[in-house]
Amino acid sequence: MAAPGGQNDLRRATLRDYVHDVLQVITTLPQPPVVIAHSLGTLVAQRLLQRYPARAGVLMTPIPAGGIPGTVVQGMRRKPVDFTKAVLGATLRFSADDLFSDLPPEVARGYVSRIGRESPWAQYAMLRPERLGPLLCPVLVVGAEDDRLVAAADVERCARALGTQPLWVPGGHDVMLDGSWPDVLDTILDWVDATCPPGPPLSGARELPPLEVTVE
């Protein structure tokens, strides 16, 4: 992966660079997409969606913008060495166990081996509480029942801050890859169908059809 935001060095990339890169992709799309984000990506998505009117946003195993006290306490207890290193700037190391609850071990290990490095600044952003403006689209917050990384209390906190309730689905932290991913996908798609009415992307355009003038 190229480092975000045109930075030559991943270690210098900030969350802002990640947001920039997502917007660069979005602006090539024919219309506003549904933004689906996972874990650290949900922090990028929350920053993005307070600025950009997507069709909708889905935040899976989210990081609340207000900080992750529950997750840090839980992590320090489970993996004190790795979490301490991460605080010092190393990429947080994951084992198959951290991410999956329902996969054959070799499949899980295969996924884990493909995880890349993370920018320390982006990791720090999870620890630093920030106030966000209201998001410009409907959001769905999805929590994973067997998540061993993001604490359930933090998922709840994230949903509350966004004025909604989490929807709990089976699986570990990487819900989009874990054994029950097809069910998770169906759940999300059902919500998207119910939330995003057909027609033009911006709601005002759905209220009244475009003007047809015949000047006689």
């Binding site: 602006t27 992307p201 911006l202 355009a205 475009p210 003007l211």
Partner: peptide
């Protein structure tokens, strides 16, 4: 042009008017 297309603005504009 890309901005207008992305947000569906062109359909809302009456040109030559």
């Amino acid at each position: 042009d890309a901005y207008a297309a992305h947000f569906g603005l062109r359909e809302r504009i009456t040109f030559n008017t």
